[in-house]
Measured scan of single mutants.
Amino acid sequence: SSGGSSILDRAVIEHNLLSASKLYNNITFEELGALLEIPAAKAEKIASQMITEGRMNGFIDQIDGIVHFETR
């Protein structure tokens, strides 16, 4: 797709992000992006959206560029 990722790509990214949230206590956007094979800024945006929508527990430290995952 030309304008970003398809629905399937997005679903795969979100699935992998949720998997990462179970493996890590926290991770930088750079590391997360590398893990998900997407730019760091996109990793931040998707993580932020999932947390806001209540689909993933955690919070974002924008100063240090880190996602902190919280286990249920």
Score class of each variant (00 low, 15 high):
M56K: 01
A41M: 08
I7D: 14
L36T: 01
K22N: 07
S21Q: 04
S48V: 09
S1F: 01
I27F: 05
I60H: 01
K42R: 14
D64M: 15
S19Q: 15
V12A: 12
E14C: 05
I7W: 12
L35I: 09
I66C: 07
S48P: 00
G3W: 02
R10H: 11
S5E: 12
S48F: 09
G58R: 01
K42P: 02
L23I: 14
T71S: 11
I7H: 12
S6Q: 11
A43S: 03
F69K: 01
E31C: 10
I66N: 05
V67A: 03
I38M: 06
G65K: 10
V12T: 12
H15I: 12
M56Y: 02
S6P: 14
S48Y: 08
D9G: 06
N26D: 07
I46Y: 08
D61P: 01
M50V: 02
S19F: 09
N26F: 15
A41H: 11
I13W: 06
F29P: 01
E14Q: 04
S6Y: 03
V67L: 15
N25D: 13
A20C: 09
L8W: 07
A20I: 15
I46P: 00
E70R: 08
F59E: 05
T28E: 02
S2I: 11
F29H: 00
D9Y: 03
R10T: 11
E37L: 08
T71F: 07
T28L: 03
E14M: 07
I51W: 02
I60G: 01
I51Q: 03
G65S: 06
D9I: 05
S48L: 12
M50N: 00
H68C: 07
S1Y: 00
E44R: 13
L18G: 03
F29R: 02
A47S: 05
R55E: 03
V12I: 13
A41V: 10
E30T: 09
A20L: 15
K22E: 09
K22I: 08
K22H: 09
I7K: 10
L32P: 00
N26W: 15
V12G: 08
H15Y: 09
G58C: 03
R55P: 01
F29M: 06
N25A: 12
I66H: 07
S21D: 03
E37V: 06
I51R: 00
L18A: 06
L35G: 00
L17T: 01
I46L: 08
G4W: 00
D9V: 05
E30H: 07
I51V: 05
E70G: 12
H15Q: 15
E37F: 07
N26L: 11
S2N: 12
E53Y: 01
D61F: 06
E31N: 07
L18T: 06
E53H: 06
G54M: 04
F69M: 04
S5C: 12
S1E: 14
S5D: 14
L32V: 02
M56V: 10
E44N: 07
G54P: 00
G54H: 06
F69R: 02
G65D: 04
A20G: 03
I38T: 02
Q62Y: 15
K22V: 08
I13K: 04
G3C: 14
S1N: 12
I27T: 03
E37Q: 15
H68G: 04
I13D: 04
M56F: 10
I38Q: 02
A20H: 06
M56T: 02
K42I: 15
D9P: 09
G3P: 11
A43D: 01
M56L: 15
N57C: 13
F29G: 00
R10D: 15
D9M: 04
A40H: 04
L36I: 03
D9E: 11
I60E: 00
A43Y: 00
L36Y: 03
G58D: 01
I27H: 01
Q49M: 07
V67H: 01
R10V: 13
E53C: 06
A40F: 06
G58N: 01
E30M: 08
A41K: 10
F59G: 03
H15K: 15
F69V: 03
V12L: 13
H15R: 14
T28V: 02
P39C: 06
T28K: 05
S6C: 13
T71N: 13
G58E: 01
A40P: 12
I27M: 13
L8I: 12
D64V: 11
A47K: 01
N26S: 15
L18C: 10
G4K: 12
A40Y: 04
N16C: 12
A41N: 09
S2H: 11
N26Q: 15
N57P: 09
I60P: 00
E70P: 07
A40G: 05
P39I: 04
K22Q: 10
S48C: 13
L17N: 02
F59Y: 14
S1D: 13
R10P: 09
A40S: 07
G33F: 02
L18M: 09
F29W: 07
E31T: 06
T28S: 11
F59A: 06
G65N: 06
N25T: 14
I63N: 10
N25P: 13
E31G: 06
I7R: 10
I66F: 06
M56W: 04
N25M: 10
R55H: 05
E44W: 08
E14D: 04
